[in-house]
Design a protein around this nucleic acid. Structure first.
Lengths: 338, 338
DNA sequence: GTGAAAGCGCTAACAC
DNA sequence: GTGTTAGCGCTTTCAC
């Protein structure tokens, strides 16, 4: 940040420079850039010419400071990798920069220690909104965000009471629906292979509860550490079969796990869906193409991202949002594996 | 951004408020927060107490404006989805916020039109560095970044002359190495299934050139549009076999394509690797687990991200970097499919 | 070790 | 439609 675009004397180009060259006042330059319709055509033209000549790029830090509008939105996800949140983040970025906002990303990861520092860094930039995914917010964190008066959208999870706004679906409803789906297909000895994260756990719990309600024997549940891998799926099926030989269905907390289960089943000569039904979660790119194609739960991440962006932009404009809690629901995509 | 954390009179908490409560001057508050060692222990304690009491969060816009240090790094990727860049972005975010920097993400997507607006938004925030991936920069874009004097790291591609710094590998070297690998395995009728993006195209070109040099018959090449899918892989193999029945190896520009080829081969009863060798690119999470396990090219995205962060931080500190061009190379992971 | 004054670059508020 | 003045909240500079 030492050397920048320069005028003759080696300083950064500012509104003042542009104003001098265009022979107008600085404020006219500002208006020409931010509200061209409030400036006379010829002043506008002179400014635009001067901007081009000097290569002037407005300092958004200064503008944001003065106007208290940062044009910044912050998103916090547990981790950017993991295909789950990608669609959402992409849609968020797209929707935002269509309207001239930028996205700041933070990873809460699995360490709570730096959550506080992350929050400082975010709040300190005075974003017009924060998109929170899944995790976090210690009681203290919630208080601080609230105190800062920044609109917050919590995503992916409608289960607990939201701080402010929320876009997502009910993990409980997913777990229940999956169990009922398998039941509807005539499966009776069902198992769950689940990653050890909170939301997967809630789906699993709801699945088990539904099984009980349906009069099924208690599902065998195998937990694997996150992030879940294909190898976990292979080992997982092996273990599940060890614990329950009569198994006729496995519900997996991710498509990658499900792919592992399919792979292991194939290796063992277990027919899918003949003797074993397999269902995943996420509808990843490969789900439709594998053999047998994978029945899975689809979440419309793109819609989540777009909706979150809209909510925040609406609030930033000072308007009230009609629906501060949006349920995007989910769908079970029936394919060959179940 | 209307209401914020408040003191009694309903205004945002600022250094001045904290200073008053701690009975020191504003500058001492600033120092207590940014350089605690230059402040006496008791002043420090009083400030910390006052900060906690008021819930003060420094306005980074103001600080950045005055000090010309934004603590912001911008990254531009074609698209955030697509598993390829994930590791890099994650490592980048991690490395940055360990040092107290945040990442601003922009997607250049496939539309060049808004590239200019994106650049304005980025430069306008005065980031201490920009990480560019793959695409973009019109001649004009390059000039503007250069003019802004912001350090730039181009990633993933060492082939063309860099604007400033670069971390990546040579796509040509990959194409060549893959061809030689297959040749070394005794394959003679080789084909390429490649996505239509620039970098994949360069790998393909190098592959074809290597084949010629090795005295192989010209490889059959099939192009598919990006982003590549598993289905493209299945159709791709079908088409390649139509064009060349004696095929004994396929090099794919992504693991997803390769998975599609494996799937289609399996469906057709074509033995892999027996009569057909398959090699991918990316080493995605499923590559090791599928049957047969997928031989593929691994790129250390995490290292790319970490290195890029280091380069930028070093430059931001005003130091010279030793190596402004880092080749992280690549490796072919030999597995069962080839 | 601490403070007073000044100003980063912009735009809100109020003239005219 | 345009300009003047002031000030957003912080930190640099210089003085003590």
């Amino acid at each position: 940040m030492r050397k920048k675009a320069k005028t003759r004397e080696g300083k950064t180009v500012t509104v003042v420079d542009v104003a001098r060259i265009a022979r107008v006042s600085p404020i006219t330059v500002s208006r020409a850039l931010n509200a061209p319709e409030r400036v006379s055509p010829k002043a506008l033209e002179r400014v635009q010419k001067a901007v081009k000549r000097t290569g002037y790029v407005p300092n958004l830090l200064a503008g944001g400071l003065r106007s208290a509008k940062s044009r910044l939105v912050a998103a916090v996800v547990p981790t950017i990798s993991g295909p789950v949140f990608q669609g959402m983040i992409q849609a968020l970025t797209d929707a935002l920069d269509e309207r001239g906002y930028q996205l700041l990303v933070g990873q809460s990861g699995y360490k709570t220690s730096r959550e506080d520092a992350l929050l400082d860094a975010i709040i300190g930039r005075r974003p017009i909104g924060i998109v929170l995914t899944g995790m976090m917010h210690s009681a203290d964190g919630r208080r601080r965000i609230l105190a800062a008066g920044i609109p917050v959208v919590e995503t992916w999870d409608l289960s607990k009471p939201a701080i402010d706004m929320a876009v997502g679906f009910s993990h409980e409803a997913v777990g229940e629906a999956v169990c009922e789906y398998l039941f509807g297909k005539g499966r009776r000895r069902v198992a769950v292979l689940s990653g050890e994260d909170e939301r997967a756990a809630r789906r699993t719990k709801a699945f088990v509860a539904a099984a009980e309600r349906l009069g099924l024997p208690p599902p065998v549940v195998k937990w694997v550490s996150v992030p879940t891998t294909l190898a976990d799926g292979r080992e997982g099926l092996a273990e599940l079969l060890r614990r329950e030989t009569a198994l006729d269905a496995v519900s997996c907390s991710s498509d990658l796990l499900a792919l592992g289960v399919l792979t292991e089943a194939h290796a063992r000569g277990v027919a899918v869906p003949g003797s074993l039904a397999v269902i995943g979660f996420g509808n990843l790119p490969f789900a439709a193409g594998v053999i047998p194609s994978l029945t899975t739960v689809h979440i419309d991440g793109v819609r989540i991202g777009r909706t979150a962006a809209e909510l925040i932009i609406t609030r930033a404009a000072g308007e009230k949002v009609k629906h501060s809690h949006v349920d995007v629901s989910f769908s079970i995509i029936p394919r060959d594996s179940a």
